[in-house]
């Protein structure tokens, strides 16, 4: 059992909060100029604010430094109160306000399609077999804001290897829980529920593609996609589907929810790309939450070295 109650855990197993806090450096650069002055009071954050968790169950984990950034982390409060999770309402603040109604236990994931071991897997069984790692990833939303989040989880490839897709499986389709009585955003047809996302098989097998079950050392808060969600750091945030209940291996390219809603705006790939505008806005820059000045958006969200080869010879303007 990897999920333990906080009191069962030896102090040596826990990532001390100080470690998180050390990573936080006060914003110096952005407030030096006249433009920044207006925001200086706002951004001079106290270190203690960076991680003031909800006190959820702590997760035992190791650190994966190969896939971790050195950037300062986005505050826990911001990561858990500024969410796009339309199942809990379309405003950024409504998931944090309403997601407590979701009962994420027990949880199982149905695996089906072109796969040798189709079954319904209990989440606990899945997690028990994995060594949870912490990875610090950039998260870039299609709306031009970004965060740096310490996720806990395991590579998606590990789960895929276990269920053994057949040679016919070319894509993986993920589905979010549909439970309008607990997810009030689903009571209105804002998107075609349930939420569906997909990856090409080689994208899904990429070591960066990650299944997260926690953040900041604790289990995922509901508004962040509890109990298990995808994190694909080189793609826009909406590709990283939350609260997954079904994984299906298909021969056909899945139609994801946002593509269905606005096909000319949200493509299947949705790789972070500063050179391909959203029809309504430029994607060249982004505001990292907690910062005043905008940053230049990086190709593949800064993961080009790792993933660019997946899209060799592809016209990324066409396959946006």
């Amino acid at each position: 059992m990897l999920i333990k109650k906080a009191e069962q855990i030896k102090p040596s197993e826990i990532t001390p909060k100080e470690i998180y806090q050390q990573r936080r450096h006060f914003l110096k650069t952005s407030v030096n100029t006249g433009l920044g002055l207006a925001a200086s009071g706002l951004l001079a954050t106290r270190a203690a604010d960076v991680f003031a968790g909800y006190g959820l169950k702590t997760l035992n984990h190791v650190k994966n430094s190969q896939y971790s950034l050195d950037d300062e982390l986005t505050k826990y409060k911001d990561v858990t109160t500024y969410n796009n999770f339309y199942e809990f309402g379309a405003s950024k603040s409504s998931p944090a306000a309403t997601a407590h109604k979701l009962n994420a236990e027990p949880w199982s994931i149905k695996v089906e399609g072109h796969v040798e071991n189709p079954a319904s897997y209990h989440l606990e069984d899945i997690i028990t077999e994995q060594t949870l790692e912490e990875r610090i990833y950039r998260l870039r939303c299609v709306e031009r804001w970004s965060m740096v989040v310490p996720w806990l989880g395991f590579p998606l490839a590990e789960l895929i290897k276990k269920v053994k897709p057949t040679s016919q499986a070319k894509f993986v389709e993920f589905t979010t829980l549909y439970r309008p009585e607990e997810m009030q955003g689903q009571r209105r047809g804002v998107l075609a529920w349930p939420y569906v996302e997909g990856l090409r098989m080689d994208e899904a097998m990429h070591p960066l593609a990650f299944l997260a079950v926690g953040l900041y050392g604790e289990v995922l808060p509901n508004q962040n996609g509890a109990p298990i969600r995808l994190v694909v750091p080189w793609k826009y945030g909406f590709k990283s589907i939350k609260s997954i209940v079904k994984i299906r291996f298909t021969a056909q390219q899945p139609v994801s929810s946002w593509t269905r809603s606005a096909p000319h705006e949200y493509g299947f790939y949705s790789n972070v790309n500063p050179d391909v505008d959203h029809p309504r806005w430029s994607q060249r820059r982004e505001r990292r939450i907690g910062e005043f000045f905008k940053r230049k958006t990086l190709m593949f969200n800064g993961y080009a070295e790792d993933v660019a080869h997946l899209y060799k010879n592809m016209d990324l303007k066409k396959y946006f």
Binding site: G41, L42, K75, K77, D78, T81, Y82, K92, S93, W145, R287, I289, G290, F292
Partner: peptide, 13 residues
């Protein structure tokens, strides 16, 4: 609310 940091995670937005 801007100066007291009550405008949420993305106050400029």
């Amino acid at each position: 609310n801007f100066y007291t940091d009550e405008l949420g995670a993305n106050p400029f937005e």
